[in-house]
Amino acid sequence: MSYVNPPNFKQAMASLAGTIDATFGESIRIIPCTSRPNFPTEAHEDKAVIVQGVFTAKPELVMRSNSIAHKGAEPAALVESRVPIFSFARAQLPWAINRGDRIQRSCDGSQYEITRIEADVTSQRITCHVVELGVMSQ
């Protein structure tokens, strides 16, 4: 008998995904979008689905440099930023999620656009790295 990979390991990990969503999750709306070169993305609001997912804003240190180079300008500094990430169970989606699709939080209505998708085969979850829409960058 293998203690490293028991026979019901994948089933246990799939049930763990549901437990994570139930414990830490919130209601999020996923809106499929069509993107074309040189045109803005077209959202298909009528095909949107509501799923239970987890939102995290992971802190990150980034280097900020002064864009105006003149005598006496302040040197580059480390600034704390945040990286918004959504994760949810893959079984909740009726279609394959794509880069450019949008995610909307139900609690405050903020919208995000998906920039990168990572699938976790073990726990049957999808992790989406996103950028917030409608917020000016600093």
Score class of each variant (00 low, 15 high):
115 T>S: 04
97 I>E: 12
113 E>S: 04
134 G>Y: 15
99 R>V: 11
135 V>P: 04
78 L>K: 15
50 I>N: 09
46 D>F: 00
136 M>Y: 01
79 V>W: 06
4 V>S: 04
24 F>V: 04
122 T>D: 11
45 E>G: 04
100 G>L: 02
66 N>M: 13
21 D>S: 07
113 E>L: 05
60 E>M: 01
108 D>W: 09
37 P>I: 09
21 D>W: 03
30 I>W: 03
25 G>K: 12
94 P>R: 09
78 L>C: 09
134 G>A: 14
51 V>Y: 00
85 I>H: 12
96 A>C: 05
83 V>Q: 06
81 S>P: 00
70 H>K: 08
100 G>T: 03
84 P>I: 08
115 T>L: 03
30 I>L: 15
132 E>P: 06
130 V>S: 00
36 R>H: 01
85 I>V: 13
68 I>P: 02
104 Q>T: 11
133 L>S: 06
120 D>L: 08
17 A>K: 03
102 R>Q: 15
85 I>L: 15
73 A>L: 02
10 K>G: 13
1 M>F: 02
5 N>Q: 15
53 G>P: 00
122 T>Y: 12
95 W>E: 04
19 T>C: 05
29 R>K: 14
88 F>W: 15
19 T>L: 06
12 A>P: 06
137 S>A: 10
116 R>N: 15
80 E>W: 04
14 A>K: 13
122 T>K: 15
122 T>R: 11
107 C>K: 14
128 C>E: 10
80 E>H: 08
77 A>Q: 09
131 V>D: 14
6 P>F: 01
112 Y>K: 02
116 R>S: 13
118 E>M: 10
95 W>H: 08
9 F>K: 15
135 V>I: 10
13 M>A: 15
104 Q>W: 03
34 T>V: 09
116 R>K: 08
75 P>F: 06
132 E>D: 08
21 D>Q: 07
130 V>R: 09
27 S>L: 07
54 V>Y: 10
128 C>N: 07
54 V>L: 10
39 F>P: 00
92 Q>A: 12
96 A>H: 10
56 T>M: 06
102 R>V: 07
18 G>L: 14
109 G>S: 11
34 T>G: 09
32 P>K: 06
44 H>T: 05
9 F>V: 08
97 I>F: 04
47 K>P: 02
129 H>D: 13
33 C>M: 10
92 Q>T: 02
83 V>F: 04
55 F>A: 13
130 V>P: 00
119 A>F: 06
93 L>W: 02
4 V>Y: 08
61 L>A: 15
114 I>F: 01
65 S>P: 01
75 P>I: 07
2 S>Q: 03
49 V>E: 12
78 L>A: 10
28 I>C: 02
34 T>E: 12
118 E>I: 11
7 P>R: 02
71 K>M: 09
30 I>D: 13
74 E>N: 04
63 M>T: 14
48 A>W: 09
16 L>W: 00
65 S>C: 05
53 G>V: 02
11 Q>L: 11
24 F>I: 11
40 P>E: 14
122 T>C: 08
115 T>R: 03
111 Q>G: 06
75 P>W: 00
54 V>I: 05
68 I>D: 01
43 A>F: 00
113 E>Q: 12
135 V>D: 09
36 R>E: 12
121 V>P: 01
19 T>H: 11
71 K>T: 06
25 G>H: 01
30 I>V: 13
102 R>A: 09
